[in-house]
């Protein structure tokens, strides 16, 4: 029975992979994983989903803005995007930088609406983190030193946003650029609270940063994740940032 279901899943995933690649999306097989903020007994289940293999580019976003004028720089409501929204664009429809670089300086509201207009949605933190555990060869590379060092080095390198999508490695699922170009919005980016006083988070908020995660934070994998969570925690939905872009996902339709 178990064998059968595995075989089925395999066929299933093969089918989706073929299908998905046409839409520039790749299948992420679901599973369970232990997030940074979890404890051993709190494994999180992630259902299978499709993910854009590239972040959304300048070129794609300018098309979206033309079709949806309310997201033009000059029209956008301050409630939905702060002053730095599309900051480097010289007009409502002229971006700077290269056309197939990830779009940046986009608020969460704009990113969310973009995905909705494509019939997609933003990934959840768990979906994003789950897909981003993969390196070239394995779905969970978090214990591999070179993988973590790659991520940490990227976090330390200034100005990586103006590079073409696809210029970093293709991961196990066939997805590019999860690490190496820009941070990415997630649907529930602010649901794991990092208050800004990270030491307190570690000490007191046992639900989010239980003892084991805090002590085990000497693991390189947690350091990289800490930085992502810290970044997300510093953002608000109307904020935008030069080093922040996004990509979309969609559910599997049966």
């Amino acid at each position: 029975m178990k064998f059968l279901s595995t075989a089925l899943l395999l066929v299933f995933s093969l089918f989706y992979e073929v299908n998905a690649q046409n839409n520039n999306m790749a299948l992420v097989e679901g599973g369970v994983y232990l997030p940074l903020y979890g404890t051993e007994d709190k494994l999180v289940k992630v259902n299978p989903f499709l993910m854009d293999i590239h972040p959304v580019t300048n070129e794609e976003f300018v098309k979206f803005v033309k079709e949806n004028p309310r997201w033009k720089k000059s029209n956008v409501k301050r409630l939905f995007a702060d002053k730095s929204y599309l900051n480097s664009w010289t007009s409502d429809t002229t971006f700077t930088g290269i056309k197939n670089a990830p779009v940046n300086n986009v608020s969460w509201f704009a990113a969310k609406n973009y995905c909705e207009c494509q019939g997609k949605r933003l990934p959840t933190i768990d979906e994003w983190e789950y897909a981003a555990m993969a390196n070239k060869d394995v779905p969970d590379a978090r214990r591999i030193k070179s993988y973590n060092q790659y991520i940490l080095n990227w976090y330390e390198t200034p100005k990586t946003f103006n590079k073409p999508v696809g210029s970093t490695f293709k991961n196990y699922y066939g997805i590019y650029d999860l690490h190496g170009l820009v941070w990415e919005w997630t649907e529930d980016f602010n649901s794991v609270l990092i208050s800004g006083e990270s030491r307190k988070d570690v000490d007191k908020d046992a639900n989010l940063f239980c003892g084991s995660a805090a002590i085990g934070a000497s693991d390189l994998m947690n350091y990289a994740a800490f930085m992502r969570f810290a970044f997300r925690g510093s953002m608000k939905a109307r904020y935008s940032s030069q080093n922040l872009g996004f990509r979309c996902v969609s559910d599997l339709k049966n």
């Binding site: 800004g196 006083e197 307190k200 030069q242 080093n243």
Partner: peptide
């Protein structure tokens, strides 16, 4: 004061 100001000063890039 708590955190020596750390909590009140947590600031995102561009802010």
């Amino acid at each position: 004061g708590p955190g020596g100001g750390a909590e009140s000063s947590f600031v995102a890039p561009g802010h």
